[in-house]
Design a protein around this nucleic acid. Structure first.
Length: 838
RNA sequence: GCCGGGGUGGUGGAAUCGGUAGACACAGGGGACUUAAAAUCCCCCGGGAGUAACUCCCUUGCGGGUUCGAGUCCCGCCCCCGGCACCA
């Protein structure tokens, strides 16, 4: 009641008022003409949310607020800031939730989007609502399909067999994120692998450029590192081991059988392996193929064939579960076949084991038990020889091996190569084998091709038509989009294909090239494809005829600043880079890196604990905004820790920023009311103001928000110190400095200060005067032997002699100097004086 | 196991190039105003000792080292968080 005084701060009223004004004025929105003509464009991007039924998560708000603060700051410095938001509405999450609720995702998604939109407007982000995107809308996924076709036409999309996660209990295909420790997330049944034909994007073709460009983009270090590891370049060699056929060995010892092979082994079939350690080849005492390796059937001897098949079967079933167990003992089966170690000239047995992965390298290894821990363990289990071929520091050819020595060293037991350093040895051995066509240098990447097929309903249909005569044919561009039909029975089933395969009148079609009867692809594409290009679409949503308006794209892209969570450090950010690069190579774009600058934000925890629905400790934003207002919420989120690292949301802590905004409001209101200027500016306040402007101007571009807010608080404290009344000139700049964090209140105060229009259009980011920011007197620490014994206050820039004199005038200092000689004096101007005595 | 990021008061967190550790807040305590409460304002607030303004000692996960001086640099540990995980 007494709160109704005309100058009291009522966040709800202020925020409703300004949100309405922004809405009506179309502030923060660009017309197509403005997009074309912007002379200082700044594309401010944040990772768009998946519109869940629960509503906006505080983590989303944290990210968006941090990004919005940056956007608003850029705008105050004179940039035209394009800040769009959209909805990543397709995908497994939406589909699963829809399944659980028994609601069709086509009905559920618009509801969630409406709720998200309401919440997003309420937090006061300056989103351009005329350029929003919804990945599940045909006007958007038409172009997602178009991108697929571009890659298809360029030979970057290929169809091949690959394993999918299969839950035998739910009888359905699972996405990787639905497999928890090898178990189905819903029923805890061990997941099996099934092989089906799927579409892959050949991102591995781009492994090297994706790696190289990491050096030229301005990204958070941790994100760069994560991508480097994910791409996983390793240098080594492919080595070829000739296979000895069983007949060669029949009735004779392996050594004898080899005699016939002699020097000339050119014609023998080969097993190829990749290794980063060709220097250890003399220690390769056996070989291992992945159970799925294509040569297994061919080389297995008849008497081993049954055992081999049993092992393969077991491996394919338990694959995923087994690989999650790190302390699992090694298993494997001998195939009955032998290879020739081309370095030693000796036959070595060929095994199969599930510790060798079919998807990496060649799917086969030369096992060097002396110098690889996995091979060592395997050799121990099966009693295979473990020779030493590398000697580390203090070791020699005969030093026993208690475990694998995986370090580098000098070659031993390696014939002519003995005594060479590992690197020289590796090079020499590869050259030697190269001469016999048994080796070549090779770079391998950990990165796999990107499987984009999903045997699911809620995604963009892959725009391919299968024709018996023509094979897979791309849907012609004029027929896009291939509209996802409304299907009431969208539950995946045991067929292993998408629910769309049950909609006959949808998938039955004719071949675009020969006109005969044909069938549509019934899988949909990965959600990550939707999100790999949305930032390209935002500025061009006014165009229905093309995906990207060339003129607008040239002006606004690449993105100036992208802010998002570290959880997308690899997949999303790598896919977006890949798609951009590929589109550039096809001539659709003229840049290859989509995000000039990327900054990750941290995670919000609550009261020291991770938030989770099961713990019931999630922060629900709406009631907080209701009680304290969006400005306070924003300010608190930015204040509770470094933006890049996140922070701990303590419920009581919000009182700090809440009180700050109240005091700010009151201070400005009373400055306006009294409207008297001082005869001369208060030097202490003026200095503090310039120091604050300086600090914010340095910290805001770097997203160092928590300390910037602390500086604003300090300044307001200085203005109000001792009950002092502020003047208009002392608070005008402050209102601008606060505006990125608390835009509604800033608009209100700017208006009350008598300015026309929005603060974000009318105000300029203040500049600081270095002279006015400089302190004229300075406190200098005085130490004796490094211990603080006093401080002296003196003019800035004072020389040593003057400071020493002042220091020696202090009783406490002289007391500590008494009785011993001064050996040395350390003087750091404007900082400290240290007497070294003794 | 590997790769990142951390460990500072009761709490969240500050601290530039190695230069006064604990900015700014929260919580707590005391006081002013008030019939009262809320709100607001003022003061105190790492630990210990000497009972005065004050002075001294200890203190940034642990143990060493470099230095006039270390939260910060170096070496060796411990613990926590995130990611990857048999990648040859």
């Amino acid at each position: 009641m007494e709160q109704d005084r005309p100058d009291s701060y009522s966040p709800g009223a202020v925020e409703t008022k300004w949100q309405q004004i922004w809405e009506e004025d179309g502030t923060n929105r660009f017309s197509p003409g403005e997009l074309r003509s912007a002379d200082a464009p700044f594309y401010n991007l944040m990772m768009f949310p998946y519109p869940s039924a629960e509503g906006l998560h505080v983590g989303n708000i944290y990210a968006f607020t941090g990004a919005d603060v940056h956007g608003r700051y850029q705008r105050l410095t004179g940039k035209q800031v394009f800040e769009p938001i959209g909805f990543d509405a397709f995908g497994i999450h939406s589909e699963n939730f829809a399944l659980k609720q028994g609601i069709n995702p086509m009905d559920l998604t618009p509801r969630n989007v409406a709720n998200f939109t309401r919440q997003l407007r309420r937090i006061g982000g300056m989103f351009d609502w005329d350029h929003t995107v919804n990945t599940s809308g045909p006007e958007y996924y038409k172009w997602t399909q178009w991108i697929f076709l571009q890659l298809f036409n360029a030979g970057l999309a290929e169809r091949k067999e690959a394993p999918v996660n299969w839950c035998p209990s739910c009888m359905t295909v699972l996405a990787n994120e639905q497999v928890i420790s090898g178990l189905c997330e819903r029923c805890d049944t061990p997941v099996e692998q099934r092989r089906i034909a799927q579409w892959f994007f050949r991102i591995t073709e781009y492994a090297q450029p994706l790696l190289d460009n990491l050096a030229v983009i301005d990204w958070s270090d941790t994100t760069i590192k994560a991508q480097e590891n994910w791409i996983g370049r390793s240098e080594g060699a492919t080595l070829h081991f000739p296979i000895l056929v069983h007949d060669d060995l029949a009735g004779s010892a392996p050594e004898t059988a080899l005699a016939g092979v002699g020097e000339d082994i050119g014609g023998a079939p080969l097993i190829s392996v990749f290794t980063t350690r060709p220097d250890t080849i003399f220690g390769a005492t056996y070989m291992v193929l992945a159970p799925e390796h294509p040569l297994v059937d061919e080389i297995s001897s008849p008497d081993q064939a049954e055992e081999v098949r049993a092992y393969q079967e077991q491996a394919s079933k338990l694959d995923l579960v087994a690989r999650q167990k790190d302390d699992k003992t090694k298993t494997g089966v001998f195939t009955g076949a032998y290879c020739l170690n081309p370095a030693t000239g000796k036959p070595i047995p060929v095994w199969i084991a599930d510790y060798v992965l079919i998807e990496y390298g060649t799917g086969a290894i030369m096992a060097v038990p002396g110098h690889d821990q996995r091979d060592f363990e395997f050799a121990r289990v099966f009693g295979l020889p473990i020779p030493r071929v590398v000697a580390g520091p203090g070791e020699n050819a005969d030093t026993p091996l208690e475990e694998a020595y995986v370090g580098h060293g000098t070659l031993v037991n390696s014939g002519d190569f003995d005594g060479m350093a590992w690197k020289d040895g590796a090079r020499a051995i590869v050259e030697w084998l190269e001469g016999r066509s048994l080796a070549e240098a090779k770079v391998n990447y950990r990165l796999h091709d990107w499987c984009i097929s999903r045997q699911r309903y809620w995604g963009p249909p892959i725009p391919i038509i299968y024709c018996d005569d023509c094979g897979p044919v791309g849907v012609p561009e004029k027929d896009l989009p291939v509209v996802l039909p409304r299907v009431e029975d969208f539950k995946p089933d045991d067929s292993g294909v998408s629910p769309l395969a049950r909609v006959e009148d949808w998938y039955k079609t004719t071949c675009p090239s020969c006109g005969t009867e044909a069938r549509r692809e019934t899988d949909v594409s990965d959600t990550f494809l939707d999100s790999s290009w949305y930032f390209l679409r935002y500025p061009s949503t006014d165009r229905e005829d093309i995906p990207m308006d060339p003129e607008i794209t040239k002006r606004w892209l690449p993105v100036d600043c992208y802010i998002g969570g570290e959880e997308h450090a690899v997949l999303h950010l790598l896919y977006a880079r890949f798609i951009t690069m590929a589109l550039k190579d096809m001539g659709h774009l003229d840049f290859e890196e989509p995000f000039v600058k990327f900054r990750k934000h941290g995670l919000i925890i609550r009261e020291g604990a991770k938030m989770s629905k099961s713990k019931g400790n999630v922060i629900v934003p709406d009631p907080i905004i209701e009680e304290f207002g969006a400005d306070t919420f924003r300010l608190y989120l930015m204040f509770l820790g470094p933006f890049a690292e996140g922070g701990d949301f303590r419920d009581e802590g919000i009182q700090g920023p809440f009180g700050f905004l109240h005091r700010l409001h009151g201070t400005v209101a009373s400055a306006i009311a009294s409207d008297t200027e001082r005869a001369a500016p208060d030097p202490a306040v003026e200095r503090k103001l310039h120091q604050t402007i300086k600090q914010l101007s340095e910290q805001l571009p770097n997203l160092q928000y928590n300390t910037a807010i602390a500086a604003l608080m300090e300044y307001l404290n200085a203005v109000r110190a001792g009950g002092r009344k502020a003047t208009r000139s002392e608070v005008e700049d402050l209102v601008v400095l606060v505006a990125p964090f608390a835009p509604h209140l800033a608009e209100e105060l700017w208006d009350r200060l008598g300015h026309e229009g929005s603060i974000f259009d009318g105000a300029n980011w203040p500049t600081f005067d270095a002279e006015k920011a400089a302190d004229d007197t300075i406190k200098i620490a005085v130490q004796v032997n490094g211990k603080l014994r006093g401080t002296v206050e003196t003019a800035a820039g004072s020389e040593q002699d003057a400071v020493v004199a002042l220091a020696k005038a202090q009783e406490n200092v002289t007391r500590h100097l008494a009785g011993s000689a001064i050996r040395r004096v350390i003087f750091v101007k404007d900082r400290l004086l240290n007497f070294v005595v003794g």
